[in-house]
């Protein structure tokens, strides 16, 4: 701590600023360490001084100032280390690197946007097509129902009439029944069944009076027609002068027509697949 030891130090290298104040600043410090002779203090200098500065914690101006500066240093160090580990490469990166990274990100964003657009289009397309498929399926189902009613493969219900023909004297011929069917069809009947037999396009009536067959199945009087259609059309069609009812009455048969809001035609026929005819797109 005495000023004599400083010349002994090898080469104060590039520290002129710190070395300069030595002559003026040194005098205040030595008084404490005055007793030991130069040679002994030389031996103790380095570690001794460090120990003296570190161990008995003294609150001196120098210590406080150094503490403040070191506090600032530690703060900066911690912040820097933290921010460096925080945002990895970007924080320390230079401007050119940042521009390049930004460019790459832009490109990537563009590519991803394109891909997103493409996928969205695809999704919309798929949704549309599945909607269309659903719609087509619904329509097909409806059509199948309608055609099924015509072909007699499904049961039908709706407003209509019940026509009952009593034939006590056995005079009703099969052609009269056929006329009745024609009349009903002309009046807009949509589904007809006779005594539990569904009347369709290829239904035929055969046999003589009292022994009538429909589609090869024998039916007996009374003949009950269940007809679905507009009752207001069907009833007059049967009752017109010279129509079905009058003709039947001439043959001593009685025909009664009864309107109903709910007629159920539940006689079915098996769906027959045609052997030769195939559906054609036209």
């Amino acid at each position: 701590m005495s000023s004599e030891e400083t010349p002994r130090n090898e080469a104060p290298e590039p520290q002129p600023t710190r070395a300069q104040p030595l002559p003026q600043a040194q005098p205040p410090a030595p008084p404490v360490a005055q007793e030991p002779d130069p040679s002994e203090s030389e031996v103790r200098t380095g570690r001794q001084r460090l120990g003296a500065a570190v161990w008995p914690p003294r609150v001196t101006r120098a210590q406080l100032i150094v503490a403040v500066l070191l506090f600032v240093l530690g703060l900066g160090l911690a912040i820097q280390v933290r921010s460096n580990s925080d945002e990895s490469a970007l924080r320390g990166a230079r401007q050119e690197d940042l521009v390049r990274i930004l460019d790459e990100l832009d490109n990537r964003t563009q590519r991803l946007e394109d891909e997103k657009q493409r996928l969205e289009d695809q999704r919309t397309e798929l949704e549309n097509s599945s909607d269309q498929a659903e719609e087509a399926r619904k329509q097909t189902q409806q059509k199948e129902q309608q055609l099924g009613i015509l072909a007699g493969t499904v049961a039908a219900e709706g407003p209509g009439i019940t026509l009952t023909i009593q034939d006590p004297s056995g005079t009703v011929e099969s052609d009269m029944l056929l006329d009745t069917i024609q009349e009903l069809r002309a009046a807009g009947a949509e589904a007809i069944q006779v005594n539990g037999i569904r009347v369709v396009a290829d239904t035929f009536f055969s046999g003589a009076a009292g022994d009538i067959e429909v589609d090869g199945k024998r039916i007996n009087a009374p003949y009950t027609f269940k007809v679905i259609g507009k009752p207001q059309d069907l009833e007059p069609a049967l009752n017109i002068p010279g129509g079905v009812v009058q003709t039947l009455e001439k043959e001593q048969a009685t025909a009664t027509v009864e309107r109903s809001e709910k007629i159920i035609v539940d006689a079915l026929r098996p769906a027959e697949r045609p052997d030769y005819a195939r559906s054609s797109p036209q």
Binding site: P57, V66, L70, F71, G74, L75, G76, I79, R82
Partner: peptide, 21 residues
Amino acid sequence: MIAVLGLVVGVVVGLLVRPEV
């Protein structure tokens, strides 16, 4: 000693408070 304490406190504060630079 006080100086070393200053350094330690600085580091700790910097790590805990995470001030925005």
